[in-house]
Amino acid sequence: MVFEKIAQLVADACDMDVKEVTKETSFEDMELDSLDVIEVVMAIEEEFKINLETGDDLKTVGDLVKLVETKTGA
């Protein structure tokens, strides 16, 4: 569930089909720079009602999923 929600937010951020997003997809491959990643992180925070307090050390969608799962205890 966490992955699906995050995949959708990431797909929205770069106008791609959500089906193309996997855990291995890297932000670099999607041409998302560090500022774009911050926007994605903020959208995720809103969706899950959590504070991630990060944004710099994330490389892939899987990193985001792991972080959110840790924060939400999912």
Binding site: L35, I38, E39, V41, M42, N51, G55
Partner: peptide, 13 residues
């Protein structure tokens, strides 16, 4: 900072 997102993040911190 170079974007509003960054500014909001550091404000919160």
């Amino acid at each position: 900072v170079s974007s509003c997102g960054m500014a909001k993040m550091v404000e919160r911190a």
